[in-house]
Simulated scan of single mutants.
Amino acid sequence: MTNSKSLIARILQTFAVVAVLILLLSQVTPDYYLVQPGTPLELSEVIEIDNDSQKFGNLFLTTVNQSRTSGVSFLYGLLNPNAELHEIEEVIPPEMDVEEYREMMQQRMTDSQNIAKTVALENLGHEIEFTGEGIKVLELAEDSPAENILKKDDIITKVNGEPIYLAEELVGYIENHPIGETVELTIERNNQEELKTVETKAHPDNPDNSYLGVFIKTVKWEPILPVDINFETGGIGGPSAGLMFVLEIMNQLTEEDLSQGRVIAGTGAIDLDGSVNAVGGVRHKVRAAEAQGATYFLVPENNYEEAQQGAEDIKVVKVTNIEEVQDFLESL
Rank of each mutant, 00 (worst) to 15 (best):
17 V>D: 04
109 M>A: 15
201 K>H: 07
158 K>H: 15
275 S>H: 08
127 E>D: 14
218 T>C: 09
43 L>D: 00
82 N>E: 13
218 T>E: 09
35 V>E: 09
226 P>I: 10
73 S>C: 03
324 E>Q: 15
189 R>S: 01
217 K>T: 15
43 L>W: 01
166 L>I: 11
87 E>S: 11
140 L>R: 09
22 I>E: 12
21 L>N: 05
289 A>Q: 13
221 W>D: 06
6 S>W: 08
161 G>Y: 10
83 A>M: 01
274 G>C: 12
211 Y>P: 02
185 L>M: 12
211 Y>Q: 00
218 T>L: 07
252 Q>S: 04
189 R>Q: 03
304 Y>Q: 12
73 S>N: 05
282 V>G: 00
115 I>A: 10
59 L>P: 08
234 G>E: 01
50 D>Q: 13
30 P>R: 10
291 A>R: 15
193 E>H: 10
70 S>C: 05
44 S>A: 03
152 K>E: 10
235 G>A: 10
29 T>P: 10
285 K>V: 08
21 L>P: 02
217 K>G: 05
215 F>N: 12
271 D>F: 01
145 P>G: 01
134 G>P: 11
78 L>C: 03
75 L>H: 08
90 E>A: 13
119 V>Y: 11
150 L>R: 12
253 L>F: 02
21 L>R: 06
187 I>D: 01
157 T>Q: 10
98 V>D: 15
323 E>F: 11
117 K>E: 09
119 V>C: 08
202 A>F: 06
223 P>S: 08
300 P>D: 01
236 I>H: 04
203 H>K: 08
241 A>S: 07
148 N>Q: 14
193 E>L: 13
110 T>I: 13
17 V>L: 15
232 E>D: 15
20 V>W: 04
258 L>M: 11
266 G>C: 03
43 L>N: 00
267 T>C: 06
38 G>I: 09
119 V>Q: 10
245 F>R: 04
68 R>L: 08
226 P>T: 11
89 E>I: 06
8 I>G: 03
161 G>Q: 07
162 E>G: 02
273 D>W: 05
176 N>M: 10
69 T>L: 02
5 K>Y: 10
195 L>D: 14
259 S>T: 14
303 N>D: 01
201 K>F: 03
158 K>L: 04
54 Q>N: 12
118 T>Y: 07
51 N>Q: 12
8 I>T: 07
99 E>P: 02
200 T>S: 11
33 Y>A: 00
145 P>T: 04
109 M>T: 11
276 V>E: 00
17 V>S: 05
270 I>M: 10
186 T>F: 05
66 Q>N: 12
44 S>M: 08
18 V>E: 04
239 P>S: 08
127 E>M: 04
329 L>M: 02
270 I>E: 00
256 E>R: 14
62 T>N: 14
39 T>N: 14
167 A>W: 03
280 G>A: 06
223 P>W: 06
12 L>M: 11
23 L>I: 10
290 E>V: 06
20 V>N: 02
150 L>W: 13
169 E>Q: 13
278 A>H: 14
40 P>Y: 03
126 H>T: 08
190 N>L: 11
67 S>C: 03
307 A>Y: 06
169 E>K: 08
231 F>E: 00
263 V>P: 01
240 S>V: 06
186 T>Q: 14
267 T>Y: 03
253 L>G: 00
330 E>Y: 07
